[in-house]
Each structure stands twice: as structure tokens, then as C-alpha cells.
């Protein structure tokens, strides 16, 4: 079968006819994965789509009733949910903007040769490899109003970062910036190192200033990769659960994922949670679509 050819060999030749056919191998290699993903990701989502139209509560034995679109209607007119979305939006903006600035800044500083560059780059990447839940826990200690090193270093007295309703969300965002700026840095470094040196040399010959070189050469050439970092971090920040959940219980820092968790597993409002999960899911899929589009674009270059 020509459409699934593994090689350029003549399909009628002996070498191409030996053993299992290409079609068999292709199906054998690909179908189990697709089936696994459908069974354990897609089927559960269809299941929860069904529940999103009911008043099912997983902790009660009484039978559920079909309520149509009521869950969705209630959610979309619930001020509490809207405030969770507003909190999430604030968090995404502050934390992603911080990561982009710090990460790209670090990459600009690192984009030169100096001793032990490899080691220092790897050390800088450590935060993003760590477990967000554990990171969140220890930032509680760092932020502690009574013995935390942060308040000591910045002479902030007993300022309670995480239990102050005005600062809790931003304290979590700062931790997230610490954790994920290295991600932006890593991508930016790849972008910066791909800028052809001769462009800088030409700019130097023309006596172009630093700012001119930066805005006319560096930024345009790095922007595709920066965009990927931006979209990916936006999606991840939108989904944030671990780090915020382990750091603070302030209602002002209740991100949408935390709201969803509480509604589903603490209030056991299962039907409505399924509906909220779907609203969140659609938003995440929209960003994913965008991400894959730009990822493929950069890949083709």
C-alpha cells in the first residue's frame, strides 16, 4: 500500500515484502496509544459532559435528576465564579508578564560567552524542574511574617504576604515568576543564539545604537519563540492549581482551578463542577489550538 510506505523501496521487491506489512506495523504501533488516550481522557470527558446536565452529588446516594442547562446558567450568572475568573486573569497577567520580563532579561544577560556559562544556565533552570506543591510549601516559610528571610532581608517587619487579602495573589505570582522565568529564559536563549551574527556586525558597521539594534534586529527575530513561551505560560498559569493551593487559603487568591477543586471535592457539587470543568476546558483548548499553531510555525523555519 503506497500511502503508508515506510521506505522508497519498490513495493514488489523481496526486501519490501518480508515480514509484517507496513500497514500492520503502523496500526499496531499507533492504535493502542489512540485507544488508551480515548479511554482514559476522552471517555471520562464525555462522561462528565453527561453529568454536567444533572444535579448529581457524588457524596449522596439519592438519585440525580436531569436539569438541562441549569448548571451552566447558574454558573455564568454566579458573581463568585466571575470573581474567580477575574482573580485568575489578574494572576495570569501579573505572573506571565513577570516571567517574560525576567526570563527574557536573564537571557539577554546570558547571551555572551563567559566562564562556567553552562553550569550557571543549568543552575538557573532548577526552579522549573521542581514540584510546584513543594515549592509552594517552602515559600510559605520564606514569606513567613515571624521568621521568614524575605521580610528580614527587605525589612518588612511582620507583613503577612500570604494571609493579607491584598497581597496573597501577588505573593503566589512572585513565586510563580521565580519558578517559571527560567522557562522563558531557556526559550529566549535559543531564539537569541539563532540570530545570525552578521546582522549584528552589519549594524555595528552602520554605527547603529544599542536600542536600534535591539528593536530592529533582536526583537523581531526572537519574537516567534517568545510568542510560544507567552502562549504556553499563559495556558499553564490559567490552569494553576498546585502552587496557589499549597501557599494560601485566601479567598482573594482563589484561582478558577482551586474553585473547581473545592466545588467538586469539598462541596461535592458534582454536576455543577462538571459544567464548570467544561467551561474551563473550552478555554484551555482554545489556547492549546493557538499554541500548536505557532509551535508548528516555528518548527517549519
Amino acid at each position: 500500500m503506497a500511502s503508508v510506505a515506510l521506505t522508497n523501496l519498490d513495493p514488489a521487491s523481496r526486501a519490501a515484502a518480508r515480514g509484517w506489512s507496513d500497514l500492520t506495523i503502523r496500526n499496531l504501533f499507533i492504535i493502542p496509544t489512540l485507544v488508551f488516550l480515548i479511554v482514559f481522557n476522552i471517555f471520562p470527558l464525555i462522561y462528565s459532559l453527561g453529568y454536567s446536565f444533572t444535579n448529581f452529588a457524588a457524596n449522596r446516594a439519592e438519585p440525580w435528576q436531569f436539569v438541562g442547562l441549569q448548571n451552566y446558567r447558574e454558573l455564568l450568572s454566579d458573581d463568585h465564579i466571575w470573581s474567580n475568573f477575574v482573580i485568575t486573569a489578574k494572576y495570569v497577567i501579573v505572573s506571565v508578564a513577570g516571567q517574560m520580563i525576567v526570563g527574557f532579561g536573564l537571557a539577554l544577560l546570558l547571551n555572551r560567552s563567559f566562564p562556567m556559562k553552562g553550569l550557571i544556565t543549568t543552575l538557573l533552570l532548577l526552579p522549573m524542574m521542581m514540584s510546584a506543591a513543594v515549592v509552594g510549601l517552602f515559600w510559605q516559610l520564606l514569606y513567613s511574617p515571624s521568621w521568614g528571610p524575605i521580610n528580614y532581608v527587605f525589612r518588612l517587619g511582620d507583613f503577612a504576604w500570604l494571609s493579607n487579602p491584598d497581597s496573597a495573589l501577588y505573593a503566589v505570582a512572585i513565586t510563580d515568576i521565580w519558578m517559571w522565568s527560567p522557562f522563558v529564559m531557556l526559550l529566549s536563549l535559543a531564539g537569541l543564539s539563532a540570530v545570525p551574527q552578521h546582522l549584528y556586525e552589519a549594524a555595528a558597521i552602520d554605527r547603529a545604537g544599542w536600542w536600534y539594534t535591539f528593536t530592529r534586529i533582536t526583537l523581531p527575530l526572537v519574537s516567534p519563540i517568545l510568542l510560544i513561551a507567552l502562549i504556553f505560560r499563559t495556558m499553564e498559569a490559567f490552569k494553576t492549581f498546585d502552587i496557589a493551593y499549597t501557599m494560601t487559603t485566601q479567598p482573594t487568591a482563589e484561582l478558577i482551578a482551586i474553585r473547581l477543586y473545592k466545588q467538586a471535592f469539598q462541596q461535592w457539587d458534582t454536576g455543577k463542577s462538571c459544567a464548570l470543568a467544561y467551561i474551563v476546558l473550552i478555554m484551555v483548548l482554545a489556547i492549546t489550538n493557538l499554541y500548536v499553531k505557532y509551535l508548528n510555525k516555528v518548527k517549519e523555519r
Partner: peptide, 23 residues
């Protein structure tokens, strides 16, 4: 298909966890 495969990675864990918990 590749997009479908990647999109399963992007699902927020809490979203997947609700039906999986019940199942």
C-alpha cells in the same frame, strides 16, 4: 491526530480528575 494527542496533555488535571474519580 497529533493535535488530539497533545491536547490530552493540556487538559487541566482537576477537570480530568472529576470523572476519573467517579469512575
Amino acid at each position: 491526530l497529533l493535535f488530539f494527542i497533545l491536547s490530552t496533555r493540556m487538559l487541566p488535571p482537576v477537570v480530568v480528575a472529576i470523572p476519573m474519580f467517579l469512575m
